[in-house]
Design a protein around this nucleic acid. Structure first.
Lengths: 342, 342
DNA sequence: CTGAAAGCGCTTACAG
DNA sequence: CTGAAAGCGCTTACAG
């Protein structure tokens, strides 16, 4: 049907120019809307590009402009909870700004993290979003980057305000009358976990007695998958269990159930992150969640700003985004100490 | 320290060539190992590239060769269970083959899926891995692609053998002596879920009475988050609950716990997919999992083969990869009908 | 307003 | 074995 015999699979600016008898510069200008082009020509060029099925060559554009339009996302472990939420929010924010996202999984390994970063740089990304492996500190680099949820070079980190989130947990538990609370963390080397626990502690100061159980330490002693001793804590008077992640809150809940301790009637449980299944279980998990879309928007916006050279690598004094409490069913009032069970 | 005053930030082939007094063609050949270059020159060129911190320009290479070295991954919803596992496996397989992965989330929407595919194509990916939204059929495209876990153009699909996986469940349950089983699915429009359920049914034919509960239908009637009536099913004699996903198995388990029915002593539960938390709960979930690394390897290998023009868009007659049973603690022998509870 | 031309950095026949 | 040259498709000063 086409007039041109044996047309190339992918038309380029030259093909459009030829078809219209104008120059490629004019076509380029018309399509990008940058240079001045006569008002009458613009629609004709646009139409022709459309009908020919023109798709600009990213490679040529990138070579010419030095910008790939792609951002790299470095994650410690795509498959573990929470990171998918981050990845999704980042992908949305980036694509809303016209950027693509190239992913790299550092598999929780520090050296692989460096390698992943290099791989991404070699692929020509314009900037990097890094969610560092716990405890890692990202040194400065010669490419714009933003860090999520871990301290780094001052000025380019966005994170949830985990301390404030912890405060939400503490306040909720205090309001419910709990006086003896077990905090459940995984690893004390995690800044995020320490902030959450610190926030809970601070908001509960004096109002409740608090103990902390670190799962990794506990498992190092008792073996992977060992019971956490929650039933025992319960018999010693603990009425509330606050975990730094829904994952551990779930583990706590199933362990209590296993010991015939009812949630929330006898024991209260609260978690963090609102993981995918948190609302589907019975009882549904009360939790505190991060504002991922906002975190992603800030990280991406700041990154793009520094890519465009409009800012000094700054995220607005290390943004800390408030978390919010999602009240569901695992929290109840503290059972009276006087009458433990009817 | 450098001899050249004010060197560019990123050296290119020309810089290396100049530094060594050879041509760019020779440098290119030495670095790629393609053309013949004298044995003595190769190491010198390599070293110089190294010390100058040479990073090849993907953009230029892509423009010249017409290949970007990047594959697109289209997912229905990065944040929902299982997809992160897929994304991770795909990323690993791709990067092992020297490819990068650009992600696009179609947010469970069919039109966004098309849009996501186009966005990826415009970014110049060499091929596409598509995990279609349930029920979607991917039409042929002018770019190489492979489909995971959904029927499509015959010949380019890899998927887990969900039917066989269902068989594993049925056999396990039968061996344990269960005679009345409730199957729990979410949506009957899902091919994956239907295959799993079909496989369970087929392997149990005649050996047990089977009912199916579709959660979406149930919730349409009783409201989102409504109890599934599992306790009632239990009192009617159901001893085993087999869900098409650990997510629903978890929901079932918590619902039974809530009704004081003990797992696995009184009721058996089994799921699918070995989601992240499946091994952390108490009791740990017995489940059937897909061989993601293998599925990813096959999809990527086949895709690369068709990109390189070495095959006719074929994945080896629609590969179906066996699933495997992971026995943990939620399954127990069927309690004798004669003496329901001691 | 429009076009001719240069050039981004690379790879690949083609001469020598 | 080595090099000069063309060309991938685009954008951007610069003339006209």
């Amino acid at each position: 049907m086409s007039a041109t015999p044996n047309p190339k699979q992918t038309p380029n600016l030259g093909d459009i120019a030829r078809a219209l008898g104008v120059s490629v510069a004019t076509v380029s200008n018309a399509l990008s809307g940058k240079g001045r082009v006569s008002a009458s020509l613009v629609p004709r060029i646009r139409e022709m590009a459309e009908t020919m099925g023109y798709v600009p060559s990213q490679a040529a554009r990138a070579l010419r402009t030095g910008k790939s339009g792609v951002l790299g996302l470095v994650l410690p472990d795509i498959a573990s909870p929470l990171f998918p939420q981050i990845a999704q929010a980042i992908e949305r924010a980036a694509s809303a700004s016209g950027y693509g996202i190239l992913i790299a999984d550092s598999r929780g390994d520090v050296s692989l993290q460096t390698e992943a970063i290099n791989r991404l740089i070699e692929r020509g990304v314009d900037g990097l979003i890094i969610v560092p492996r716990r405890g890692t500190r990202i040194a400065s680099m010669d490419i714009p980057f933003a860090v999520i949820d871990s301290p780094s070079t001052p000025g380019n980190t966005v994170s949830a305000d985990h301390w404030q989130g912890g405060g939400l947990v503490g306040a909720h538990l205090a309001a419910l009358g709990h006086r003896k609370i077990l905090l459940i963390g995984n690893n004390p080397a995690s800044n995020v976990q320490n902030d959450r626990i610190g926030g809970i502690r601070a908001s509960l100061a004096g109002a409740a007695s608090i103990e902390v159980l670190w799962i990794e330490q506990h498992e190092a002693q008792h073996g992977i998958g060992a019971l956490l001793g929650l039933a025992e804590a319960f018999t010693r008077g603990t009425t509330a269990f606050a975990a730094v992640s829904d994952l551990h809150a779930l583990r706590a809940m199933t362990e209590l159930h296993r010991a015939n301790i009812r949630v929330p009637e006898e024991a209260t449980i609260i978690g963090f992150d609102d993981l995918f299944w948190a609302s589907a279980i019975t009882p549904a998990m009360t939790t505190v969640r991060m504002d991922m879309p906002r975190i992603a928007d800030i990280a991406i916006a700041s990154l793009i700003r520094t890519i465009d050279g409009k800012s000094g690598d700054d995220i607005g004094e290390n943004a800390r985004i408030p978390m919010s409490l999602i009240v569901r069913q695992t929290c109840g009032p503290a059972p009276s100490i006087i009458s433990p069970s009817p």
